[in-house]
Amino acid sequence: MKLAPIRYAAPATMDEAIALLGSCDAKVMSGGQSLMPIMAFRLATPELIVDLKKIPGLDQIVIDDQGVRLGAKVRWCDIESDGRLAQANPLLAEAIKHVAHYQIRNRGTVGGSVAHADPASEMPAIAACCEAVISVIGSKGARKIKAVDFFISALQTSLEADEVITEVLLPAWPAGRRWGFQEFARRRGDFALAGIAAFYDLDGQGCAANAHIAVFGASDRQHRLPGAEAALNGRPVTPETIAAAASAASAEVDPPSDIHAPGEYRRALVETLTERALAHAAK
């Protein structure tokens, strides 16, 4: 479990970092919490590691009328300790409590998690649920990518090899929005066997509107569940509506089987967790 021979660079500017990334088979390192174990197992053997640690900025949580802007180097512990998020995006604050363990939350970063795109991770689930806009920069300049276009498959994104994530914007969170977050893992901090991030607003008649329900851990990527959302929109949020939405959710996932759980279990779990997330939202 020793790394293969590797070169390491910690450039001081983003321009240098981008140039290095274009120069060879290189990989960006942020917190290193996923990349280092993968390299220790020699499952990834890049020629060069480009560590972002000396690049200034990228580590702020900015809350403005656009929403919550998470710098790519914002760590999970920064999110946990930011009291403003209870108002600005309580769904994010709740989700990040479930990320791994204390030590990992002290190093793992927003940009690293989004770029790694593990299908069972919380941050991509929040990005998918909230329709995040992901800002990236590379040799061809800066661009913004919608979450729905960003996550392609397990560990695959639309990020180019020489692009670096700079910011994840979660659009503004209106007061009165109802939300719920549920995940189930074998032990606290383990990867989710399945999870649901959900919110909706209430229209003038007290019915659900603008429902956003995203699933993680039960597909090859984090994505919204339009069938479940449709079952909720325009209806009063009763136990019957919730049950219908949960049933729709389980019908529109086709989870894979692995050593931790068969697909049929995950499908049932999606129904249970959707029901619980929406019940929390309706409370």
Partner: peptide, 16 residues
């Protein structure tokens, strides 16, 4: 063997 690390072979932790 499919359980090649402690991420897949689950041990009880202090809080379990």
């Amino acid at each position: 063997i499919l359980t090649g690390s402690l991420a897949d072979y689950l041990m009880p932790t202090a809080s379990d």
